[in-house]
Design a protein around this nucleic acid. Structure first.
Lengths: 115, 115
DNA sequence: CAGCATCCAATCAGATACTG
DNA sequence: CAGTATCTGATTGGATGCTG
Protein backbone atom coordinates (compact mmCIF):
# COMPACT_ATOMS: atom_id res chain seq x y z
CA UNK A 1 0.00 0.00 0.00
CA UNK A 2 1.16 3.48 -0.85
CA UNK A 3 0.76 6.25 1.68
CA UNK A 4 -2.26 7.56 -0.14
CA UNK A 5 -3.94 4.17 -0.23
CA UNK A 6 -3.11 3.71 3.42
CA UNK A 7 -4.75 6.96 4.38
CA UNK A 8 -7.90 6.11 2.48
CA UNK A 9 -7.92 2.68 3.98
CA UNK A 10 -7.79 4.03 7.51
CA UNK A 11 -10.59 6.44 6.81
CA UNK A 12 -12.75 3.68 5.46
CA UNK A 13 -12.04 1.53 8.46
CA UNK A 14 -12.90 4.34 10.81
CA UNK A 15 -16.19 5.09 9.11
CA UNK A 16 -17.15 1.44 9.16
CA UNK A 17 -16.21 1.06 12.79
CA UNK A 18 -18.31 4.09 13.59
CA UNK A 19 -21.29 2.48 11.96
CA UNK A 20 -20.63 -0.76 13.75
CA UNK A 21 -20.48 1.07 17.02
CA UNK A 22 -23.88 2.58 16.48
CA UNK A 23 -25.79 -0.37 15.06
CA UNK A 24 -23.47 -3.27 15.80
CA UNK A 25 -24.06 -6.07 18.23
CA UNK A 26 -26.83 -8.58 18.44
CA UNK A 27 -29.71 -6.38 19.47
CA UNK A 28 -29.53 -2.82 18.23
CA UNK A 29 -31.04 -3.36 14.83
CA UNK A 30 -33.70 -5.76 16.04
CA UNK A 31 -34.77 -3.13 18.54
CA UNK A 32 -34.92 -0.44 15.89
CA UNK A 33 -36.90 -2.72 13.63
CA UNK A 34 -39.31 -3.60 16.38
CA UNK A 35 -40.07 0.03 17.06
CA UNK A 36 -40.24 0.70 13.36
CA UNK A 37 -42.87 -2.01 13.16
CA UNK A 38 -45.06 -0.18 15.58
CA UNK A 39 -44.04 -1.32 19.03
CA UNK A 40 -43.90 1.70 21.24
CA UNK A 41 -43.92 0.38 24.81
CA UNK A 42 -41.00 -1.10 26.65
CA UNK A 43 -42.67 -4.41 27.32
CA UNK A 44 -44.02 -4.69 23.81
CA UNK A 45 -40.55 -4.29 22.40
CA UNK A 46 -39.23 -6.68 25.00
CA UNK A 47 -41.71 -9.38 24.05
CA UNK A 48 -41.30 -8.89 20.33
CA UNK A 49 -37.64 -9.84 20.34
CA UNK A 50 -36.91 -13.43 21.34
CA UNK A 51 -34.35 -13.88 24.10
CA UNK A 52 -33.56 -10.26 24.80
CA UNK A 53 -33.66 -9.33 28.47
CA UNK A 54 -34.99 -6.14 30.03
CA UNK A 55 -31.56 -5.29 31.30
CA UNK A 56 -30.06 -5.40 27.82
CA UNK A 57 -33.03 -3.73 26.19
CA UNK A 58 -32.78 -0.87 28.62
CA UNK A 59 -29.19 -0.24 27.63
CA UNK A 60 -29.84 -0.55 23.93
CA UNK A 61 -32.68 1.94 24.08
CA UNK A 62 -30.45 4.43 25.79
CA UNK A 63 -27.72 3.94 23.22
CA UNK A 64 -30.13 4.32 20.32
CA UNK A 65 -31.59 7.45 21.80
CA UNK A 66 -28.16 8.98 22.24
CA UNK A 67 -27.48 8.30 18.60
CA UNK A 68 -30.68 10.00 17.53
CA UNK A 69 -32.23 6.89 16.06
CA UNK A 70 -35.17 6.71 18.42
CA UNK A 71 -37.10 9.12 20.57
CA UNK A 72 -38.29 8.53 24.12
CA UNK A 73 -41.41 10.35 25.10
CA UNK A 74 -43.28 10.59 28.32
CA UNK A 75 -46.94 10.66 27.44
CA UNK A 76 -49.15 12.13 30.07
CA UNK A 77 -52.54 10.62 30.43
CA UNK A 78 -54.74 8.68 32.76
CA UNK A 79 -51.57 6.96 33.79
CA UNK A 80 -48.18 8.10 32.62
CA UNK A 81 -46.81 6.19 29.67
CA UNK A 82 -43.44 5.95 28.03
CA UNK A 83 -43.40 5.69 24.27
CA UNK A 84 -40.54 4.98 21.93
CA UNK A 85 -40.68 5.98 18.30
CA UNK A 86 -38.12 6.06 15.56
CA UNK A 87 -36.86 9.39 14.33
CA UNK A 88 -36.91 10.75 10.84
CA UNK A 89 -33.15 10.46 10.88
CA UNK A 90 -33.40 6.76 11.61
CA UNK A 91 -34.85 6.19 8.18
CA UNK A 92 -31.45 6.90 6.71
CA UNK A 93 -30.43 3.55 8.11
CA UNK A 94 -32.51 1.88 5.46
CA UNK A 95 -29.64 2.21 3.04
CA UNK A 96 -27.51 0.17 5.38
CA UNK A 97 -30.03 -2.30 6.71
CA UNK A 98 -31.63 -3.42 3.50
CA UNK A 99 -28.39 -4.62 1.93
CA UNK A 100 -27.57 -6.38 5.18
CA UNK A 101 -30.86 -8.20 5.14
CA UNK A 102 -30.41 -9.21 1.55
CA UNK A 103 -26.86 -10.37 2.07
CA UNK A 104 -27.77 -12.36 5.16
CA UNK A 105 -30.38 -14.34 3.27
CA UNK A 106 -28.08 -14.93 0.35
CA UNK A 107 -25.25 -16.02 2.60
CA UNK A 108 -27.36 -18.52 4.45
CA UNK A 109 -28.23 -20.18 1.16
CA UNK A 110 -24.62 -20.11 0.11
CA UNK A 111 -23.50 -21.94 3.22
CA UNK A 112 -26.39 -24.38 3.01
CA UNK A 113 -25.39 -25.24 -0.53
CA UNK A 114 -22.04 -26.46 0.71
CA UNK A 115 -22.99 -28.64 3.62
CA UNK B 1 -48.25 -6.21 14.65
CA UNK B 2 -50.37 -8.73 12.82
CA UNK B 3 -49.19 -12.31 12.58
CA UNK B 4 -48.04 -11.75 9.05
CA UNK B 5 -46.07 -8.66 9.96
CA UNK B 6 -44.62 -10.47 12.90
CA UNK B 7 -43.40 -13.32 10.75
CA UNK B 8 -41.76 -10.95 8.30
CA UNK B 9 -40.22 -9.04 11.13
CA UNK B 10 -38.64 -12.14 12.58
CA UNK B 11 -37.23 -13.14 9.22
CA UNK B 12 -35.72 -9.73 8.74
CA UNK B 13 -34.18 -9.83 12.17
CA UNK B 14 -32.73 -13.25 11.54
CA UNK B 15 -31.18 -12.26 8.24
CA UNK B 16 -29.66 -9.17 9.77
CA UNK B 17 -28.31 -11.07 12.73
CA UNK B 18 -26.77 -13.54 10.34
CA UNK B 19 -24.97 -10.75 8.58
CA UNK B 20 -23.88 -9.29 11.88
CA UNK B 21 -22.53 -12.63 12.91
CA UNK B 22 -20.38 -12.87 9.81
CA UNK B 23 -19.06 -9.33 9.54
CA UNK B 24 -19.96 -7.86 12.92
CA UNK B 25 -17.61 -6.81 15.64
CA UNK B 26 -14.78 -4.35 15.59
CA UNK B 27 -12.30 -6.16 13.43
CA UNK B 28 -13.81 -8.37 10.77
CA UNK B 29 -14.40 -5.75 8.14
CA UNK B 30 -11.11 -3.97 8.74
CA UNK B 31 -9.36 -7.29 8.23
CA UNK B 32 -11.22 -7.94 5.00
CA UNK B 33 -10.44 -4.44 3.79
CA UNK B 34 -6.79 -4.80 4.63
CA UNK B 35 -6.51 -7.97 2.60
CA UNK B 36 -8.55 -6.40 -0.14
CA UNK B 37 -6.01 -3.61 -0.21
CA UNK B 38 -3.24 -6.00 -0.99
CA UNK B 39 -1.93 -7.21 2.35
CA UNK B 40 -1.37 -10.91 2.11
CA UNK B 41 0.87 -11.84 5.00
CA UNK B 42 -0.19 -12.24 8.60
CA UNK B 43 2.16 -9.62 9.93
CA UNK B 44 1.35 -7.17 7.17
CA UNK B 45 -2.31 -7.37 8.02
CA UNK B 46 -1.46 -7.15 11.69
CA UNK B 47 0.51 -3.97 11.22
CA UNK B 48 -1.97 -2.36 8.89
CA UNK B 49 -4.74 -2.30 11.48
CA UNK B 50 -4.11 -0.08 14.49
CA UNK B 51 -4.53 -1.76 17.87
CA UNK B 52 -5.45 -5.23 16.71
CA UNK B 53 -3.52 -8.02 18.39
CA UNK B 54 -2.22 -11.21 16.87
CA UNK B 55 -4.48 -13.26 19.06
CA UNK B 56 -7.56 -11.51 17.80
CA UNK B 57 -6.37 -11.38 14.22
CA UNK B 58 -5.79 -15.10 14.27
CA UNK B 59 -9.35 -15.76 15.30
CA UNK B 60 -10.83 -13.34 12.83
CA UNK B 61 -8.92 -14.87 9.95
CA UNK B 62 -10.25 -18.28 10.83
CA UNK B 63 -13.79 -16.97 11.06
CA UNK B 64 -13.54 -15.19 7.73
CA UNK B 65 -12.11 -18.26 6.06
CA UNK B 66 -14.94 -20.40 7.36
CA UNK B 67 -17.39 -17.96 5.91
CA UNK B 68 -15.73 -18.10 2.51
CA UNK B 69 -14.70 -14.48 2.51
CA UNK B 70 -10.97 -15.06 2.42
CA UNK B 71 -8.66 -17.82 1.30
CA UNK B 72 -5.63 -19.10 3.17
CA UNK B 73 -2.89 -20.51 1.02
CA UNK B 74 0.37 -22.13 1.85
CA UNK B 75 2.84 -21.00 -0.74
CA UNK B 76 5.83 -23.24 -1.16
CA UNK B 77 9.05 -21.54 -1.99
CA UNK B 78 12.50 -20.88 -0.69
CA UNK B 79 10.83 -20.71 2.68
CA UNK B 80 7.20 -21.59 3.20
CA UNK B 81 4.81 -18.66 3.19
CA UNK B 82 1.21 -18.21 4.17
CA UNK B 83 -0.87 -15.93 2.01
CA UNK B 84 -4.34 -14.58 2.56
CA UNK B 85 -6.44 -13.36 -0.31
CA UNK B 86 -10.06 -12.37 -0.63
CA UNK B 87 -12.39 -14.61 -2.54
CA UNK B 88 -14.58 -13.73 -5.47
CA UNK B 89 -17.54 -14.25 -3.18
CA UNK B 90 -16.23 -11.64 -0.80
CA UNK B 91 -16.85 -8.97 -3.39
CA UNK B 92 -20.55 -9.38 -2.78
CA UNK B 93 -19.95 -7.67 0.52
CA UNK B 94 -19.43 -4.43 -1.31
CA UNK B 95 -23.16 -3.90 -1.36
CA UNK B 96 -23.15 -3.98 2.41
CA UNK B 97 -19.90 -2.26 3.20
CA UNK B 98 -20.19 0.77 0.98
CA UNK B 99 -23.44 1.97 2.54
CA UNK B 100 -21.94 1.40 5.96
CA UNK B 101 -18.95 3.53 5.10
CA UNK B 102 -21.13 6.26 3.74
CA UNK B 103 -23.46 6.20 6.70
CA UNK B 104 -20.61 6.24 9.19
CA UNK B 105 -19.18 9.40 7.70
CA UNK B 106 -22.57 11.05 7.55
CA UNK B 107 -23.36 10.13 11.12
CA UNK B 108 -20.14 11.50 12.46
CA UNK B 109 -20.94 14.85 10.92
CA UNK B 110 -24.46 14.69 12.25
CA UNK B 111 -23.27 14.20 15.81
CA UNK B 112 -20.58 16.82 15.44
CA UNK B 113 -23.17 19.31 14.34
CA UNK B 114 -24.96 18.94 17.64
CA UNK B 115 -22.14 19.24 20.12
C1' DC C 1 7.24 -15.73 10.09
C1' DA C 2 2.62 -17.36 11.64
C1' DG C 3 0.50 -18.33 14.91
C1' DC C 4 -0.91 -21.00 19.69
C1' DA C 5 -0.92 -21.40 24.98
C1' DT C 6 -1.40 -19.29 29.20
C1' DC C 7 -2.49 -16.02 32.63
C1' DC C 8 -5.27 -12.50 34.12
C1' DA C 9 -8.24 -8.30 34.12
C1' DA C 10 -12.34 -6.31 32.42
C1' DT C 11 -16.56 -6.46 30.43
C1' DC C 12 -20.96 -8.66 29.36
C1' DA C 13 -25.03 -10.86 30.14
C1' DG C 14 -28.51 -14.06 32.57
C1' DA C 15 -31.45 -14.52 36.69
C1' DT C 16 -33.82 -12.59 40.07
C1' DA C 17 -35.63 -9.26 42.97
C1' DC C 18 -36.99 -4.76 43.79
C1' DT C 19 -38.86 0.35 43.13
C1' DG C 20 -41.70 4.68 41.80
C1' DC D 1 -45.56 -0.47 33.57
C1' DA D 2 -40.70 0.79 32.99
C1' DG D 3 -37.16 0.14 34.35
C1' DT D 4 -32.86 -0.29 38.19
C1' DA D 5 -29.89 -3.09 41.51
C1' DT D 6 -27.32 -6.86 42.63
C1' DC D 7 -25.05 -11.09 42.25
C1' DT D 8 -22.76 -14.25 39.46
C1' DG D 9 -21.08 -17.05 35.69
C1' DA D 10 -19.42 -16.63 31.03
C1' DT D 11 -16.93 -14.33 27.45
C1' DT D 12 -13.57 -11.19 25.67
C1' DG D 13 -9.29 -9.31 25.16
C1' DG D 14 -4.60 -7.58 26.42
C1' DA D 15 0.25 -9.03 27.51
C1' DT D 16 3.60 -12.14 27.11
C1' DG D 17 6.13 -16.04 25.95
C1' DC D 18 6.67 -20.06 23.23
C1' DT D 19 6.92 -23.21 18.96
C1' DG D 20 7.70 -25.34 14.25
Amino acid sequence: MTDKEEKRFREKVKAIQDTMFVIGGKWKLPVVLSIYNGNKRFNDILNSIPKITNRVLSKELKHLEENLLIRREVVDGYSVKIEYTITEYCLSLNDVVKPMEKWGKMHRNKLRGLS
